[in-house]
């Protein structure tokens, strides 16, 4: 249990997807103009990460990993299918995104039209594939750990996009130097937020 809390807090604050690994930058920059749309996209990312990481964990451990196929027959002990992981992971992600898209379209058409092209683009949001690849690289011990890691990374991404959207709503009334207007200043603000998040690095349990 302690272990799970540790992974959760760490993936939100210390290994934050945006500030520590720069994953999911495209939608982070493009959709963060208002808090409302950012909330929608952030929730979609939490949801998709929370589903795809555990599914890809199962695929990795029961199909792809070296010796993973022994549950079918001991003869497959030295089969290593890891070279297929990118293609399989991205296929799982693309189909999950399709599912989320249909659910949101059904239940919240306004949110659906607000998110526009960025909902299908979650499929190519690097934070989603990045989540699965980090899961593979860090070799979590159980399904619960992988799920918690997926959810935590999603929540970290969610916090980051809400923060930047709130600041960008305010900064519209400030006097920013002309060449920095738009994305230039957004990067600088993100950098400053990143410095603040570095303060969490000392967290130990």
């Amino acid at each position: 249990m302690e272990n799970l809390v540790d992974i959760f807090v760490k993936s939100i604050f210390v290994d934050n997807m945006i500030f520590a690994y720069f994953l999911g930058m495209c939608s982070y920059l493009a959709v963060s103009k208002t808090v409302k749309t950012s909330t929608g996209l952030g929730l979609a990312v939490v949801f998709v990460l929370g589903i795809t990481v555990p599914i890809n964990y199962l695929i990795h451990n029961y199909i792809l990993k070296e010796g993973a196929l022994t549950w079918i027959s001991p003869a497959y002990a030295d089969v290593d299918l890891t070279f297929l992981s990118f293609i399989l992971f991205i296929a799982v992600i693309a189909s999950m995104v399709q599912l989320v898209e249909m659910v949101i379209e059904k239940f919240s058409p306004t949110l659906y039209s607000n998110l526009g092209i960025f909902l299908p683009l979650i499929a190519v949001n690097c934070s989603i594939l990045g989540g699965s690849l980090f899961m593979q690289e860090r070799a979590y011990n159980s399904l619960a750990e992988a799920t918690v890691f997926g959810l935590g990374s999603g929540v970290g991404w969610f916090l980051a996009i809400i923060g930047i959207a709130a600041i960008r709503e305010k900064i519209r009334y400030s006097n920013v130097p002309a060449p920095l207007r738009g994305l230039g200043i957004t990067f600088i603000i993100t950098g400053l937020m990143g410095i603040a998040f570095m303060g969490f690095m000392g967290i130990k349990f």
Partner: peptide, 13 residues
């Protein structure tokens, strides 16, 4: 990490 954002911000300018 944060330096990447700062440097890119000014280079965009």
């Amino acid at each position: 990490a944060p330096g990447a954002f700062l440097a890119l911000g000014y280079l965009i300018m």
